[in-house]
């Protein structure tokens, strides 16, 4: 979905969002007050400048608008692949963004991620995946890598990967797979404003993704193995 159309549907009571290239930020009005919005469009490749800019906006919200909820609407094809980004330490910029989101959470901001178009790899990791809870639209695309590229690197024939992807959510692209594995809490359909208000009202707790993955039978080992290491004898 187009970002402007999405914002109209999320905030029928009104919103003020400024677009600048592939970046946008602003506020939307809900029944419970204002929500801060930060996002990207056009499957943005997240390089050092964009990660830095999003992080700066998160810090600005924490500083100037205590406890205002933050909605991340990041449309990304992943991290920008370039020697310059690596030279400047792009992983440090991604980590900085993740830390800023954590600081917001610790300061009492609700942080909600909504994948409305694409979410890929590093760009997804440092943004929506660090939200308290991440949601998606049904038409969203979520992946690490497409199957032909995966086949080239793993040397496993693409037909084999395609067959197995019918049985297992564990490697193939698809928002349904991330739903089953617990990383996406719910798909938002119909009245998006109502979906947002329900998400804002939901309790914030611990990282519940592995519990959901187990309950939905999409990720059976993550929870039990982590629990065994946490509580087991050395």
């Amino acid at each position: 979905m187009d970002a402007k159309l999405l914002l109209e549907q999320l905030f029928p009571a009104g919103q003020r969002v400024d677009f600048d290239g592939q970046y946008f930020s602003g506020t939307g009005q809900t029944a419970d007050g204002e929500v801060a919005v930060i996002g990207t469009t056009d499957a943005a490749a997240i390089g050092v400048e964009l990660a830095f800019r999003i992080a700066g906006q998160v810090l600005e919200i924490v500083r100037s608008h205590p406890r205002r909820p933050i909605l991340l609407l990041v449309d990304t094809q992943g991290q920008r692949l370039s020697r310059r980004d690596e030279l400047l330490g792009i992983n440090g910029y991604m980590a900085h963004l993740a830390k800023c989101i954590e600081v917001a959470r610790r300061a009492g901001h609700r942080v909600i991620g909504l994948v409305y178009s694409q979410a890929v790899s590093g760009g997804f990791l440092a943004s929506s995946m660090l939200a308290d809870t991440c949601y998606a639209l049904p038409e969203a695309e979520v992946r690490v890598m497409n199957l032909p590229a995966m086949s080239r690197i793993t040397k496993i024939p693409v037909e084999r990967l395609q067959d197995l992807s019918q049985l297992s959510p564990v490697f193939a692209p698809g928002v349904e797979n991330y739903l089953r594995m617990g990383a996406i809490a719910e798909l938002w359909q119909g009245d998006l404003a109502a979906c947002l208000e329900k998400a804002l009202a939901a309790a914030v707790g611990h990282d519940a993704r592995r519990d959901r993955g187990l309950a939905r039978q999409g990720r059976l080992l993550a929870g039990p193995v982590a629990e065994r290491v946490r509580h087991g004898g050395a």
Binding site: S121, I156, D207, R219
Partner: peptide
Amino acid sequence: GVRLHEANAGLIAVSEVMRAVLAVRG
């Protein structure tokens, strides 16, 4: 980085590691 043979599980696991590192530091 993420193990491509189980790419989705690996990506989600890395984000859980990220949250856990920050919780420990917190």
